[in-house]
Structures are given as C-alpha cells and as structure tokens.
Nucleic acid binder design. Structure first.
Lengths: 150, 150
DNA sequence: TTGACATCGTTGCACATGCAACAATAATGA
DNA sequence: TCATTATTGTTGCATGTGCAACGATGTCAA
C-alpha cells in the first residue's frame, strides 16, 4: 500500500465535525448536567420553549430542532414529570399538544442561558479570526437543501 | 422578554456543529450502512486497522479515534464475528489484543474507501472557499489542550 | 520474592435510542 | 354523509450506549 492509498481519518471532515461537536457539546453539557441534571435533548426543547414563549407543539419543535418526534415526545414527558413543562391538548386541533414552561422551568432557564452565552463567547474567543470561517462553512452545511441532487 | 434576551439556538456553535456533524456523518453512513451494513464505530475501527496495516491494540485505537475502550472492544467483537477482523493475544504483553483485518476485511475497505474519498471531495466542492475556513477552525477546536484553563 | 498498584480489555446492568406500528384526530373528496 | 387518507404524538420492542466493576496481566519497589 502506497502512502497515497492511506486514508487519514484525521483529515476526514465528517469525522472532524463529529469530534468537534462532541467536544463542545460535552464541555457545556457537563456544566448543566452536573448542576441542573438536564440532558442535551432536554436543553434543546427547553430553549425552544423559552424563545417561543410557550404554546408550541411537538411538531413545531421537530421542525426547528434536530430531534425526531419521538425524542421530543419522550423528552417532554420527562420534563413534565420534573415539573419544568406542562402538556395540554390544543383546543383547536386536538391532535396537537401544547407545551409550555412552568414557572420553575423559566427559573431554570434563567440560570442556564447565561452559562450558554458565556460558553459561546468562550468559543468565539478561542477561535479568534477562525470563527468567521467556521460560521460561513456551517451556514453552507446547514442551509436547506444542503444535500443537492448530485 | 426583550429581543436581546431571546436565545437563538440556530446561532449556538455547539448546536450548529452537532447538526452539521450528524448530517454529514449520516449522509455518508447511509451509503455504507445500506450497502455494507457497517456502523460508524465499525467504520472508524476499520479505517484505523487499514491505515496501520494491522497489529494494533484496543488501546492504540482508543488513542487515535474518538471512541471509548468499551466501544472499541464491542465493535471489534462484532467485526470478528463477521469475519472482517481477527483478534489474537499479543505475545509480548498478554494484556494486549492484536487486531488485524482479514482478507475479507481488506476487500471491504477497498470498496469503502473510494466512497469516503468521493464524499470528502463532494463536501469540499460544496463548501468551496469556505472549506479553508472550516479546516482552520476545526484545527483549533480539535488540537490537544483545546480545553485551556479558562 | 512478594505485595501493592497500574494497565488492558471485557462485561453486567441500567438506561437511552431508533424503528415501526399504533390510536386518536383531522382533512379530503366522492 | 361517510369512507379514505393524512397528520400528530405515543409506545413496544429490540438494539445501542455509558458507567462502573471486574479478572487478567504487567510493573515496580520494598
């Protein structure tokens, strides 16, 4: 096998992205997992409920977060058990579930969001000028139709 | 709540990285999962065996791939069951397991690696000039000690 | 030599996750 | 209206995963 045939995983973009994602996610998750006992899916659902101001359905969250319906369903149930979220049937369409933060849920988010913002700043500082480049590339990768018909 | 208080998950780097990683990984994984029935951990272990030319231990792989020891152990067992990999005790240190590709394993990699290379090229084309920026940022995020004493 | 400690890989167990099937409700159209 | 189809959210089941404990082997120093 010649050198040209060697496949270098360390230069393989999907692998690099996976490792970087895991590292950054865990670095932050450690903070809120140990302090508040919430997982990444829980964090994502909570953030969306916070920014939407409540009254959102599973379907709405599915459309905006990279989570499957069943993950959201289970996550919401756990959050409900812990008193952070309420679930109620929509009056207009009884298939829909209206999710909303409880007072306790909002209080939790008031503690969590500063952590997340601080972490974001830390990443931007760490990357310095490279942050712009990262943003541009991620915009490309994440934009709709990122999987063109080729 | 004012606009300044809204937390935008879509601008949160750990989230963006996680989604981009999942998307790119799955886009490729779909190809080799359906065609060859191997998972991402299996793919990573195989690649390292290929580039190392065999005679590698679980510990070696752990040091080079973002996988835990137990994941590698289980992955290697599965690959062994499928006849792609052999496990044998090291003669010099009997705690170590020597992993090596079988002929069948090498044949599989000969089919897989072109797929991976083609996908890498596709990503680079898709990103165009932004690819350089992505590389620079990922280098930063992935380099050792990426978690400085902040 | 021997005892304490370190390292390597595996595994039992509990929990998480993915898939596909499902019940409940709504929308559509003959 | 009523039958058919689509949508929403949940769940049973099999599999995957993470953690901590473990046995086996090696290392080192008294």
């Amino acid at each position: 096998m010649t050198d040209a045939d060697v496949f270098d995983l360390d230069r393989f973009t999907p692998y690099r992205l996976a490792v970087a994602a895991k590292r950054t996610s865990e670095e932050l998750a450690i903070q809120y997992r140990t302090r508040f006992g919430i997982s990444i899916p829980e964090w994502r659902v909570l953030v969306h409920l916070e920014s939407a101001g409540g009254d959102i359905s599973v379907r709405d969250i599915e459309a905006r977060v990279a989570l499957e319906k069943y993950e959201i369903s289970r996550t919401a149930s756990r959050l409900e058990e812990r008193g952070l979220v309420t679930k109620s049937a929509s009056t207009t369409d009884r298939r829909l579930i209206r999710l909303a933060l409880t007072t306790e849920g909002r209080a939790l988010m008031a503690d969590l969001l500063p952590l997340a913002r601080a972490y974001q700043e830390k990443i931007e500082k760490r990357l310095g000028a490279a942050f712009e480049g990262l943003e541009a590339a991620l915009d490309q990768l994440l934009k709709e139709g990122a999987n063109p018909a080729d």
